[in-house]
Design a protein around this nucleic acid. Structure first.
Length: 411
RNA sequence: GUGGAUGUAGCUCAGCUGGUUAGAGCAUCAGGUUGUGGCCCUGAGGGUCGAGGGUUCAAAUCCCUUCGUUCACCCCA
């Protein structure tokens, strides 16, 4: 299937390593893990992500024949919010909680570099704190764990969208502005105008960019509280030494964001899909889904993209090697070796054995190719004399093994 | 969803304006070395030329369809 991949061997090791690295940070910041189904009622996404977003319009995998309609999750937040409140893990007025999730997300768009139809995200959600210090903590943490990953350079872009009311007013203002200039907009933006005006700000067409330059600015239309909320975040980042760039046109495709939105972008060769972490505040979402007023914010990490970057920077991962290859040279050896294998493997070491009916030479070649650390060859001779030779493949040396001693101690 | 590139051996790729049994390197196996890796030499095995249809005396090569891969638009992690 297009854009849906099998994962194996070293790719998985890198991926698991990334997850472990990030989880360490999450735990130290007090996040606990939550797992939600990879499917939800379609309506949940409809309400949260926004009906006119691209995700809802064309990227959702939906089982239409079921009632209610079921969709594969395109992102993690909606399901987590649903789960938190359905299971009463948190309620309005309680202190706060932090949870994280990890797993596959699904979006049906055309695959390209850094974009798959099934992709993995690790995300964190922080419920209960309306103060900007929550953003500062989240951004500082993400910056910390990204910095310690061998992924090259990245930048943090940040913006504010204001609260629900400010946003509503601004959207109307913007709509009027663009409506008056509708002929100067690109085709897509002309239809965007009626669905999500904010995204016109993000358009890359020259025509639209020119119009955006003189468009009313959101910052001019924010109330004092939203402005100071944003200022406090920026100051906090500065004091913590977290570099950022304010991008006034940064809008996010998910419609539930309020106030703060941010994105960490790789500047180090990911191609066109260079966003590695995205997130923001969503103070209204809990109300939409669960009917309670709870301030919240969250972020999601694109694990596949981090994996690409790490591979590109060709970090040498410890390759897995067998500790010992056992080669039997004849029937005598074969009988003996089976017993050893079971015992030795219970120690947790990787003991390799070539069961093919081929020459000792071919088996040696294989042991060399898979980079076994040591090799032992067993045949009638060795068993009768109770002495075998253990070859150290790296040192090109040999050592005698008296079978009265433990073989485990020799490797 | 739109546009471009591409698909030949396990891998990386040659194969001209259609022309006999489709090639190379690496890898594999065997032998040189009767039971010992990396280097070297010799040989062998391995392909419905992505799939389906069409044009032709003749198709890996030309045309159509389809599937996969890939890059960009778009969107986002």
């Amino acid at each position: 299937m297009q854009g849906i991949k099998d994962l194996f061997y070293q790719d998985l090791e890198i991926r698991n390593w990334i997850c472990e690295h990030i989880l360490k940070f999450l735990y130290s910041y007090g996040y606990l893990e939550i797992q939600t189904p990879i499917m939800e009622e379609r309506d949940l996404f409809f309400r949260s992500v926004g009906e006119s977003s691209d995700i809802m319009e064309k990227e959702l995998y939906t089982l239409d024949s079921l009632r209610p309609k079921i969709s594969l999750r395109p992102e993690g937040t909606a399901g987590v919010v649903r789960a938190i409140f359905r299971n009463k893990l948190f309620y309005s007025g309680q202190d706060f909680i932090k949870v994280f999730y990890r797993g596959s997300m699904f979006r049906h768009n055309r695959p390209q570099k850094g974009r798959l139809r099934e992709f993995m995200q690790i995300g964190g959600e922080f419920f209960g704190i309306k103060e900007p210090i929550a953003e500062i903590e989240v951004l500082a943490m993400v910056h910390q764990f990204l910095k310690k990953l061998p992924i090259g350079d990245f930048v943090l872009e940040i913006n504010t969208l204001g609260n629900k009311e400010e946003r509503k007013i601004y959207i109307e203002l913007l709509f009027k502005y663009f409506e008056g200039n509708i002929v100067h907009l690109c085709k897509e933006c002309q239809s965007r105008l009626f669905k999500s005006v904010l995204r016109v700000l993000d358009c890359k067409h020259e025509k639209c960019k020119r119009l955006v330059l003189t468009a009313p600015s959101l910052l001019d239309n924010l109330g004092r509280e939203s402005l100071s909320h944003f200022d406090i975040i920026l100051n906090g980042l500065m004091e913590l030494g977290v570099p950022y760039v304010v991008n006034r046109n940064l809008v996010r495709g998910l419609e539930y964001y309020t106030r703060t939105v941010f994105e960490f972008l790789s500047t180090d060769g990911l191609g066109a899909q260079n966003s590695i972490v995205g997130g923001g505040r969503y103070d209204n979402l809990v109300n939409i889904i669960a009917g309670e007023d709870v301030p919240a914010l969250g972020f999601a990490v694109g694990v596949d993209r981090l994996e690409m970057l790490i591979k590109k920077n060709s970090i040498n991962f410890l390759e897995k090697r067998p500790d010992l290859s056992i080669i039997y040279a004849d029937e005598y050896g074969k009988q003996q070796v089976l017993k050893w294998l079971i015992n030795l493997r219970s120690s947790g070491k990787w003991i390799d054995c070539d069961y093919r009916d081929v020459s000792v030479r071919a088996k040696m070649r294989r042991a060399n190719r898979i980079k076994s650390k040591k090799v032992i060859i067993i045949g009638e001779d060795e068993i009768k004399k109770k002495i075998a030779i253990i070859k150290d493949m790296d040192m090109h040396s040999e050592e005698a093994w008296d079978m009265k001693k433990s073989l485990l101690e020799m490797i």
